[in-house]
Design a protein around this nucleic acid. Sequence first.
DNA 1: ATGACGATTTACT
DNA 2: GTAAATCGTCATA
Length: 225
Amino acid sequence: MPEGRSRRARRLRRGEFASDAASLAVALLGKRLVRVLGDGTRLSGEIVETEAYLGVEDLAAHSAGGRRTARNEAMYGRPGTAYVYFTYGMHHCFNVVCGAEGEPAAVLVRALAPVEGVGVMRENRLRARPRGARSALRDVDLCSGPARLCAAMGIDLSFNGLDLVRGGGLFVECAGWSPGAGEVLNTARVGVGYAGRWAVAPLRWCVAGSPHVSRVGGAAPAGGG
DNA sequence: ATGACGATTTACT
DNA sequence: GTAAATCGTCATA
């Protein structure tokens, strides 16, 4: 079913990234994250899971309390800027900066349904897997997590601060489909247990029933949308 | 200079 | 279910 590039595909404009993080997190579902390699090869996937990080007041965000460091500087940039960070000594995560410039809000892209360049994504994932990894790598798991999708798409720190609008080889396309309200699950965010009441705020969104959504603790996301 | 800690993934019991 | 892997970043000194 996923065919290649649609003729109608259109890159998102600056203004479409300027909304608040929660709105953008929902709006990005169904959009396509695209990377174009040097030789013109396209790697892309439909966004099926996102999380909103609201900025200064959000204790789960890297920008909590207005924290501004070399690492999270990109969060303070123009809407449509890529914020990529390195964590756990081995993983990268990709965010889209949103809101007004100077206000540190972003949307973490947590999972994709691969569309183009699936073979390359698989190679990238296998190469990035820890030494000793033996289990089969299922297609459905190529991009089913924030670090997995970065590995598959080849997104690393060199993309941090990149403008997705003027875009080099990384941008977001309108794919011509977005889930309706009944097709979206809204849950608490993953991996932010340290953030007090912000840990349970419903700021994660998934395309309901998508097999490409991340499975935390081995389970599919529960709860209604 | 040093120590603690991840917006995770994987393997193993 | 638990635990290991692995290192840049930040706060403290």
